[in-house]
Amino acid sequence: MYRLYGMPTAWREMERIRREMNRLFDTGPDRLLRQAAAFPPMNIWSSDEGLVVTAEIPGVNVDDLEITVVNETLTLKGQRAADEINENSRYHRRERGQGRFARSIQLPFPVNSGEVDANMKDGVLYVSLPRAEEDKPRKITVKGS
């Protein structure tokens, strides 16, 4: 920036394009999106009161799902069964995976494990984890003199 005034016009134009490109890459909608380390990919919503973890696990039976919270780690275990087909049937196309999965994720703050609540709706899992009482942010009032 400080030497911009001494630059020839073409360079200045290049510099402008470079900055424009950086801005595009930095602010795209994918900026927040990260690659999941294992199945299932999870989204984490947070507020001062707690967290909500969501995961898309279509076709997983609630009975086959195991959710545990130990300290600040949330673990999700489960399995998805394939359709049972007999010897008279055959697959034409097979893209959906199946089998067991297990994944642990580190939570950003301690949660009250006694009040963790999980819901499954249309193949989407919602786990709500209230923040531990002692960890909640306290508002500090500033006294005027």
Partner: peptide, 12 residues
């Protein structure tokens, strides 16, 4: 999610 913000996203 009123009051909540998406802080970690692995799927859309």
């Amino acid at each position: 999610m009123p009051g909540y913000g998406l802080t970690w996203a692995e799927y859309e």
